[in-house]
């Protein structure tokens, strides 16, 4: 049976949800081993060992691994790939940063953003902003894949009985250093795990209007807030709100698109949502072609009214 190594996405305190989808994908390939690389992250390894279906958890605890710098992490993973057949990472910003570096060091052509496992070396993945789904077979001896979080069920966080094994390694490559991060403090649910998302588009006019119209509705519903690329480009909200081909891929229970026309690249990020609701004054807007429930109305009247009536 194939041995897979899953890179665990975490913040040195807890396992991030995206890891759980990667574990599910890996379990379809073979035995699942995890790598927790970080600094002061023993608790992460302990909880990772409880994820259902997990075998060994390798814990590399080293100050050089604290910030997931790919220059330090990738060589460590390459060492482990001497005795694993597949490397699996979630297609998060960290996963996307690290996996190709690993692939090139192993002389393997990576499969990005995998949607399904079709066979031991065969996968489906989206191309052209999700407008074409390719079924692709690898001829490399080892596999390197990143996994789209919304395409796989999350592995259960309990019931597993993995064993934690401390390993050394992760020396400083001396190429890069971490300066700092500005992680948005957000009281609202994270986009990739929110059950409901309210998204705004360019029609929201400016940053203040976006906040005044979208935020109250989102807060009433306990929803996460997203935005189209146009709204991000126009500076209404920061880039980490962006839903689409080049932003986040989401699949909530309910997605409410407000003043979003429905460009291809936006649809690529949200069309797997269970129910899509669109509010737009242009009845020909492409968003209505994918919406389950549409309301043709001026958002500046309709959204406050909706917020008031909920």
């Amino acid at each position: 049976m194939a041995k897979t190594l899953v890179w665990v996405e975490h913040d040195n305190t807890q396992v991030k949800d995206a890891t759980l989808a990667a574990v599910t994908a890996a379990s379809q390939l073979g035995e699942v081993h995890l790598l927790v690389a970080g600094s002061g992250c023993a608790a992460v390894a302990e909880s990772a060992a409880k994820i259902a279906g997990v075998g060994k958890v390798h814990l590399a605890d080293n100050a050089t691994l604290k910030d997931a710098l790919p220059e330090n992490v990738a060589p460590l993973i390459v060492e482990f790939m001497g005795h694993h057949d597949a490397f699996v990472a979630p297609a998060t910003s960290n996963g996307k940063n690290i996996a190709p570096r690993v692939a090139a060091l192993l002389d393997v052509m990576q499969l990005s953003d995998v949607l399904s496992v079709e066979g031991p070396k065969t996968f489906t993945r989206p191309t052209y902003a999700g407008n074409a789904i390719a079924t692709v077979e690898s001829s490399d001896a080892k596999l390197v894949i990143t996994v789209r979080g919304t395409a796989f069920a999350k592995a259960k966080t309990s019931g597993g009985s993995g064993t934690v094994e401390a390993v050394s390694g992760g020396a400083d490559a001396g190429l890069s250093s971490f300066v700092g991060a500005e992680i948005a403090k957000n009281e609202r649910p994270e986009l990739t795990s929110a059950k409901i998302i309210v998204s705004g588009g360019r029609a929201l006019k400016d940053a203040d209007t976006f906040q005044q119209v979208i935020f109250p509705l989102a807060d009433k519903l306990g929803a996460g807030v997203g935005a189209s690329r146009a709204a991000v480009d126009a500076g209404y909200v920061p880039n980490d709100y962006q839903v689409g081909q080049t932003g986040k891929i989401v699949a909530p229970e309910v997605y409410i698109a407000v003043g979003i026309s429905g460009a291809i690249q936006h649809l690529a990020g949200m069309k797997d949502s269970k129910t899509i609701i669109a509010i737009n004054k242009d009845e020909d807007a492409p968003i209505f072609q994918v919406a389950d429930i549409g309301l043709v109305a001026d958002l500046f009247n309709a959204v406050p009214e909706l917020t008031g009536k909920l």
């Binding site: 065969t122 789904i133 390719a134 079924t135 077979e137 899509i276």
Partner: peptide, 23 residues
């Protein structure tokens, strides 16, 4: 190439739903 494309297909199509009259 290291990867062989076996097939390229359209993604599942989402059909338009209903329009509601008001809030």
């Amino acid at each position: 190439p290291r990867l062989k494309t076996l097939k390229v297909s359209e993604p599942p199509v989402r059909s338009a739903g209903i329009k509601v009259a008001d809030v």
